[in-house]
């Protein structure tokens, strides 16, 4: 084998209509085989109703070094969570 098959990331939508979730990766020569292989490797027990495969090389990821710059700003904004606002016990449905 002279040429290594590209790596594909696999995303599965589970039975209950939730978003596709990353489950792992695999090698395949093309998208069609990637779907076939993903079926065998990641859905042997009824794990899903839909498969996405994406070439790993096409994924752009944030860098661990940027963690602070990206995620720090939301740390100070606790008021974005409903629990920030205490509600009197006698007030219902809020």
């Amino acid at each position: 084998m002279s040429k290594e098959w590209p790596l594909w990331e696999v995303f599965i939508r589970s039975q209950h209509g939730l978003a596709h979730k990353h489950v792992g990766s695999l090698h395949a020569p093309d998208a069609e085989m990637a779907i076939n292989n993903a079926r065998d490797v990641y859905t042997r027990r009824n794990e899903g109703v839909s498969i996405w495969v994406v070439k790993a090389a096409d994924i752009v990821a944030s860098s661990p070094a940027d963690k602070e710059a990206l995620f720090e700003p939301s740390n100070s904004k606790v008021y974005r969570h409903p629990t920030f606002f205490p509600m009197p016990e006698e007030v219902k449905n809020l």
Partner: peptide, 13 residues
């Protein structure tokens, strides 16, 4: 078989 899969993928592309 692996080679055939690659040939097929290249032809399709």
């Amino acid at each position: 078989f692996r080679e055939a899969l690659v040939a097929h993928a290249e032809k399709q592309a």
